[in-house]
Design a protein around this nucleic acid. Structure first.
Lengths: 146, 146
DNA sequence: CTTGTCTCTGTACCACCTACAGACCTTAAG
DNA sequence: CTTAAGGTCTGTAGGTGGTACAGAGACAAG
């Protein structure tokens, strides 16, 4: 019934950084670009973070670990904040992201194959002829078949 | 015996861009950062590129396609320009690059696995419960085992 | 009271480009 | 000859995703 007159326990920016593993300055950056909300300030203008900020930044860090761009993370957060009817949209977003991950892996594997084949032709000796340089110098070198 | 008094056939920046597939502005950028040499200019201060510029930019573009950073490309070019006794060094550089490609692929595959497993748990329906959001919200979520 | 550590702000820097403004110059058509 | 369209020149700003540092203010310990 009665409002709790005790102030919510808050932490400072350095604590939030420590608790989430996020770089101190990056927190301010995320606030600037709107990925994190501007937190309340105390009398001395210091930022005061509560549990919700910790949870949100953890969310952001995990999404970042999964390779989502900040733009995608912003979209995910909007869906989370939106609340209802989100699963289909989140799934779509994650699936698109999975596709781009698959494409990146395919690209890297193609590069890996071409480069490892080329390196394998190297004598590895202190001679001027080098298969890698030759490959890069030859005008018919093409990585992309397109 | 006699010097050829004819000037070497040169092309302009837009032609170099077209011939190599490099963006017009990127050429100037590469000159600024020393990846490409400053070309001679004509009376009107226009850049004049010859065959050597075309070959060098092609080299840079191919190395870029293989995912070498500009720093690595600079190193490759220095080795090429150095001339003798380079194969071992080039091979070492390329091998290091291959390692980092392998690491990137491993990272992406780990992400791919975690995310695809998570997405598979989505109902895909218009409901508020979403496995992806749940995973990102849960405090025990960890991608990196470290 | 001084020293050290924290916070605040703005701003500059990293890779790797891309793009645009404003000033020139060239070319082709009318 | 004139004019309009296009190319070239320069410097500089923007984008992504941060990182770092300078300079000012706050605060606790010795």
């Amino acid at each position: 019934m009665s409002d709790n007159h005790k102030t919510v326990k808050t932490v400072r920016r350095s604590d939030l950084a420590r608790l989430t593993g996020c770089n101190l300055e990056t927190i301010r950056y995320y606030e600037n670009i709107g990925v994190m909300p501007e937190p309340p300030r105390n009398a001395k203008n210091y930022r005061c973070y509560d549990e919700s900020h910790i949870a949100r930044l953890n969310f952001v860090m995990r999404a970042r670990d999964l390779g989502f761009t900040l733009e995608e993370i912003r979209d995910l957060l909007a869906l989370v904040d939106g609340g209802m009817q989100t699963c289909a949209e989140v799934q779509a977003l994650a699936s698109r992201h999975l596709e781009s991950i698959g494409a990146k892996i395919a690209d890297l594997r193609r590069i890996q194959m071409v480069l490892s084949e080329t390196v394998a032709q190297c004598s590895g000796e202190n001679v001027p002829d080098c298969a890698v340089i030759d490959a890069l110098t030859q005008s018919d070198f093409k990585l992309h078949t397109a």
